[in-house]
Design a binder for these strands. Structure first.
Ligand code: SF4
Ligand code: SF4
Lengths: 146, 146
DNA sequence: CATATTTAAGACTATTTTATCTTTATATAT
DNA sequence: ATATATAAAGATAAAATAGTCTTAAATATG
């Protein structure tokens, strides 16, 4: 059961890497460092992070000592915003049986199940900020690599 | 957010079509009828249903008036069995961030969220039988097509 | 037996996702 | 100025998923 694409996985892990390493003094973190630390293909990661830069999550700076950094406070960036950029705005419009053009009034046989599941995922993503995750990672010493 | 492949979607919809139309007298329902009624590619559906036949969910019969039928009572077939055949036995072993080799003791930053979500999906699939769905479909007149 | 109907099997094509490689643009440092 | 480090952009390749087409095997019927 895969709910996120690899691109999203990489993007989220990279952001979590950044927020969990804040305060070490660096302003920009290079994509080379992230791809190496997290063992993610450099070029693929680059493309993914470009989307987040275009999506106003990150700012980037070229040249020596350049890299990427959060554009806004980590407290203000909810996971849902990241996911919507990487997966598309319609991420939560998809359906369990792949049907279309339906709502609570015109449900398919699994709508009641799907509604709850999708609701929980959406709620989780809406209420979790990068700051919360960063704190959690450091406090519990959680891993970002296999 | 897509949790099931197209093959699973088609397979489930076909099974639901069968159980919601039981008792009309036919023993076997042809793949041609199903693919037409549900607007699913005939050949693709055929391949999918072959997996379910091999997986002891269906029996098939060739020749005129042939088709497929449930091998066991609809009460005994839980959705999880179907999904595991079509998606693989490891369907519930995948992870939110795509990491591997982890469990409750070695969690990644989103493990607590993922655990709950995956648990609910698994529980839903484990406790829902084809018979329950068939009854539901007929009682509430639910649709299987877009 | 001959023919029509239906599933089984597998080759083939198309699309999407994932990954790699190459080139370009921009900034820094010497 | 020149060399170096870095992100941006885009071309190309590989792999996974989805879909189509062809042929074979089994069965029923006349
Ligand atoms: S009825 Fe609900 S679960 Fe089914 S396809 Fe529509 S929105 Fe999705
Ligand atoms: S820690 Fe949990 S959610 Fe994270 S990758 Fe492992 S099993 Fe999946």
């Amino acid at each position: 059961m895969k709910v996120l694409s690899n691109a999203s996985n990489y993007g989220l892990r990279a952001l979590l890497y950044i927020v969990s390493r804040r305060g070490r003094g660096e302003t920009y973190i290079s994509l080379g460092e992230i791809s190496e630390e997290l063992d993610i293909s450099f070029h693929f990661l680059t493309k993914t992070m470009q989307l987040l830069t275009q999506g106003e999550i990150l700012v980037s700076y070229r040249g020596p000592n350049g890299g990427i950094a959060l554009k806004r406070p980590a407290e203000e960036i909810m996971l849902i915003e990241v996911v919507k950029i990487l997966e598309g705005e319609d991420f939560f419009d998809t359906c369990m049986l792949g049907l279309e053009g339906c709502d609570d009034c015109n449900p398919c046989p699994v709508h009641h199940l799907w509604r709850e599941i999708k609701g929980k995922v959406k709620h989780d993503f809406e209420t979790t900020s990068l700051a919360m995750m960063g704190k959690r990672i450091n406090e519990k010493n959680l891993r970002l690599i296999p």
